[in-house]
Amino acid sequence: MKLNAEMTQDVLLIHVDEPRIDAAVAIRFKDRMRDLTDGATGRVVLNLAGVEFIDSSGLGAIVTAMKQLPDGAVLELADLMPNVDRVFRLTRMDSVFTIHDTAAEAKRDHAC
């Protein structure tokens, strides 16, 4: 599972460099997210710009990643493609996660 992380301002920005988050990669996604967010404090923004498809296993993996964050850390999402955005809205997970149009917006929102 290709995930890349960078600290920018006080935000841990994680880029998903895979076209799909589905049953085939869900366990690796959760493990990699746990590794990258270990010790995180504050905001963690998951940039999904390259993700074209997500299924229920992928959605569950993102929820698990949120739940396994250290105390005080919060998971936000950015750059959802239309198909991925639709999954979050249909399942009402858009009420669970803060969703930003872009990663740049997520960083800018933090600066305000």
Rank of each mutant, 00 (worst) to 15 (best):
residue 19 P to M: 08
residue 54 I to K: 03
residue 47 N to Q: 10
residue 85 D to W: 07
residue 63 V to C: 03
residue 15 H to Q: 14
residue 56 S to Q: 07
residue 70 P to V: 01
residue 93 M to D: 00
residue 89 R to K: 15
residue 45 V to G: 02
residue 6 E to S: 15
residue 107 K to Q: 13
residue 25 V to L: 12
residue 55 D to A: 05
residue 37 T to L: 09
residue 39 G to E: 08
residue 56 S to D: 07
residue 18 E to I: 01
residue 17 D to H: 11
residue 112 C to P: 00
residue 96 V to I: 15
residue 48 L to Y: 04
residue 96 V to P: 01
residue 61 A to L: 07
residue 86 R to K: 14
residue 59 L to H: 09
residue 112 C to G: 12
residue 40 A to G: 00
residue 7 M to G: 09
residue 57 S to T: 10
residue 83 N to M: 12
residue 65 A to G: 08
residue 47 N to A: 11
residue 62 I to R: 03
residue 55 D to L: 08
residue 72 G to T: 01
residue 39 G to I: 05
residue 74 V to N: 10
residue 33 M to Q: 02
residue 32 R to Y: 00
residue 107 K to M: 14
residue 80 L to D: 01
residue 33 M to D: 01
residue 13 L to G: 02
residue 40 A to Y: 00
residue 34 R to M: 06
residue 99 I to Y: 03
residue 71 D to A: 15
residue 2 K to F: 12
residue 63 V to G: 00
residue 55 D to F: 09
residue 4 N to G: 07
residue 27 I to W: 00
residue 56 S to K: 10
residue 9 Q to E: 15
residue 15 H to N: 11
residue 54 I to F: 04
residue 14 I to E: 00
residue 93 M to L: 15
residue 95 S to R: 15
residue 95 S to I: 05
residue 42 G to D: 05
residue 60 G to F: 03
residue 15 H to E: 14
residue 58 G to Y: 07
residue 104 A to R: 12
residue 41 T to M: 08
residue 107 K to G: 08
residue 41 T to K: 12
residue 63 V to Q: 01
residue 75 L to S: 10
residue 8 T to G: 06
residue 104 A to S: 13
residue 66 M to A: 07
residue 46 L to T: 01
residue 106 A to V: 05
residue 31 D to N: 12
residue 84 V to S: 08
residue 36 L to S: 06
residue 83 N to I: 01
residue 78 A to Y: 03
residue 91 T to S: 15
residue 53 F to L: 12
residue 92 R to M: 14
residue 35 D to L: 12
residue 65 A to Q: 05
residue 46 L to S: 01
residue 34 R to E: 12
residue 76 E to A: 07
residue 46 L to I: 04
residue 53 F to K: 05
residue 83 N to D: 13
residue 74 V to A: 11
residue 50 G to S: 13
residue 9 Q to Y: 14
residue 35 D to W: 04
residue 82 P to Q: 08
residue 50 G to V: 02
